[in-house]
Write a protein that binds this DNA or RNA. Structure first.
Lengths: 236, 236
DNA sequence: GCTGGTAAAACTGTCGACAGTCGGCAATCG
DNA sequence: CGATTGCCGACTGTCGACAGTTTTACCAGC
């Protein structure tokens, strides 16, 4: 059941200011409009966006729960800054979640799931050829969301989504240097092959390889920029 | 490093109303003061607690991000109700996280970690003999928090904490029927033994057994009460 | 007695304002 | 000349109020 409502992407027009502000802030943070560690003033934001402080506060709380902002009592909200260790942790958790997911998925690999994933890989390959880095990342993530979805544990998917926000935070930050389109394609095809084989071990290996590649790629990127050395979050 | 500050439990007195309201709501929900699916009125709450609506709203948002409340636009907040499927999902995710954690932990099982875990098992055993169900659960969860902590991935621990709120939601709800004290004890001793053995496979087996027992216990409880049949969240 | 529509009540979303607090700057003291 | 203390500005935490919407209650018609 509930197949029709699969992979929902919030079609409903969000009229409430809170979500609008949250989206604005998310985009601004990801696009480096706000620098990591920077302090966000509520009054400033409410003035800039033409709304009162209440929606701004609620949106900030939302972003805080997503790990994009940090709140210090009586000090305000600060843009989250990830150091190398936290980045490793994020990818380690991702590995944890996706391993589990693919193990579940291979046991219930329906034709519908297979079709959906293959279709998404097509979309992804197309996106990979384009120059739109954001779209490439989103389609990539969408593929993994689908995997998690068809694994049949909605709570697992939610945990992944929570993590995704932090992934975006650092990925978009780094990926000026693009992954080669064919690398992306083959990397995902291997996952499909492993699923087709029906072997849990093959799946395990495939996902380890897949995420390992992504991890190295991003961690290397962080190393290059050399920012965020050892200390935790910047604000004081 | 940072060993001394491990497992911090917020010494500073929390003066802000938001956290106070959040704590109040959390307790009220767990203790079944508010029934699953019940609607919470902001004005009512603010009147009862003697504060304005702003802190109540923010606290509700916080609880929403923790999965204890559900917000429907223009409708308000509702107490989350878990059905059997969602409950299975929660335990499946818990298994996913703890498996990963214990695999990491067994590879870096320091004497300090060993000592801390053993000490916590002692505390837990003591709590198990008492009649305080809440304390028993909290000490049990604290043991697992410690495992996750010493596994060395803070993000993994956060994911577990997020899940914990939902666990409390259903566990406290069910566990009038107590687990036998000796069951709790041996169940945790097996985990320690597996860690001592240094064998990942033994750890894997131990944690699977451990969580399997807890899962059966809770799921059975839900089955007994017979509530929350199939449909998702109650509101409407 | 039941159904459909209308009006009142209650509630959420949003706003502007006030008070307490924190950080920074300058003046004073050693 | 350096350190400490007091003051000032800015900002967060909290509050009460207003507008739009949803729910409920009531009444007329069948």
């Amino acid at each position: 059941m509930a197949f029709t409502a699969s992979a929902p992407r919030a079609f409903i027009q969000q009229q409430n200011l809170v979500e609008q502000v949250a989206d604005y802030l998310t985009q601004a943070i990801i696009q480096q409009h706000f620098l990591p560690g920077e302090r966000l003033s509520e009054v400033q934001l409410s003035r800039d966006l033409g709304v009162s402080r209440a929606p701004v506060r609620e949106a900030a709380r939302l972003l805080e729960s997503r790990g994009l902002l940090i709140s210090k009592p009586r000090r305000g909200f600060f843009v989250r800054a990830l150091n190398a260790v936290e980045l490793e942790d994020v990818f380690d958790l991702r590995l944890c979640l996706e391993r589990h997911a693919i193990h579940r998925l291979v046991e219930r690999y329906t034709p519908e799931a297979k079709r959906a994933l293959e279709q998404q890989v097509d979309v992804l390959c197309e996106a990979a050829e384009s120059n739109d880095g954001t779209r490439r990342i989103e389609e990539d993530l969408q593929f993994h969301r689908l995997m998690l979805h068809y694994a049949g544990n909605e709570r697992l998917l939610r945990a992944f989504d929570d993590l995704t926000h932090e992934l975006r935070l650092c990925i978009t930050l780094i990926t000026k240097t693009h992954e080669a389109p064919d690398t992306i394609a083959t990397s995902h095809f291997k996952l499909l092959e492993a699923l087709d084989s029906g072997s849990p071990d093959a799946c395990h290996e495939a996902i380890d390889y897949h995420i390992g590649v992504a991890r190295k790629f991003v961690v290397k990127g962080v190393g290059e920029t050399g920012e965020h050395s050892d200390e935790d979050i910047l604000p004081r």
